[in-house]
Amino acid sequence: MTGIMTGFPSFDAATGGLDVRKTYLVTGNKESGKEDFSYRLAASSLNGKLSVVYVTNNKSNTDLLSEFTARSLNIAQYLGVSMTILDNYVRSIAPQAGDNNYTKVLNGPVDLTGLTVAVSSKNSDLLKDGRTVVNIFDSISSLLLYNNPVTMFRFLQYICGRAKMSGVTTVFLLDEQMHTPEVNETVRSLVDGIISLKLDNGKRYFTVSGVAKEVLTWTPLG
């Protein structure tokens, strides 16, 4: 089985893409380009005929789509077909916001059960349809700010367990600067692969560890 292409040639050449069925943590600080990485990964997965469930915890579904547009990533034809947005943010600015044909609106960061139910049932629908699925959580830093570490640990453990069982590739974005080393360590212990990103002198670099093809020295991302 070939990997999931991220849309970054240097990354894909060095790693063969993301391993299907694995869980990944994408870490880096604010300017590191985690979000850029995740938008391109989503677009590249969709172009590769995969299905994406995109959980947004810190921007609305409309703002998320603008991010794609701003990068000339055209995903319009996938919306509601292979691309589903679980909007866990918009109700904090628009309490009455409702679903549309590609977005399910959730209750926000403290309702981890609501999020789990939505992710699981969307995944089930897609898997029954014979699709290969990528879940992206952008980002779990916001969830960590609202929930205590024990609660988050239970939640992440459950999500990772279900992802393993159902063969869904899962990507968590995390801004490690926002959390204590213990919290970061705990999150790291739950995933298979860790993708670290950084910005240095205007250039982006990555490392990957924990998977078959590791890249342990900072390598230009592009």
Binding site: R91, P95, Q96, N107, V110, D111, T113, G114
Partner: peptide
């Protein structure tokens, strides 16, 4: 109710 807002609950 601590899971969501009353408005959303009733909707």
């Amino acid at each position: 109710l601590n899971r969501t807002s009353p408005q959303v609950y009733l909707t």
